[in-house]
Amino acid sequence: MSQALDMLSVLLLFFGVLFILVGSIGLLRMPDVFTRMHAAGITDTIGAAAIILGLMLVAGWTIVLIKLLIVLLFLMLLNPTACHALARAAVHGIRSPWQGESEQQQ
């Protein structure tokens, strides 16, 4: 049983790392701030959640588990809020989101 949990934990950590790295690459590759936000969203939601869940599985039934859960809930509450506030500000500040190569030429 505990071996299965360990396996699952390693799997979750692996996917978490994968998504975080892909998100970071997206952060560098994407053409404008909004599309970069989507890339950063991968890191901040799925990547973070997978890593915290992976840690939760190895923590066992201790207070560490509760604290990890609180950290997870906080990240899931605060990250989209910060992202939304940033996107809202960027819409007013930039006004012209990137809409594909052809429009960017203008």
Partner: peptide, 9 residues
Amino acid sequence: YDRILASNT
């Protein structure tokens, strides 16, 4: 905004 986004992530 890019910089704020980067610092947030």
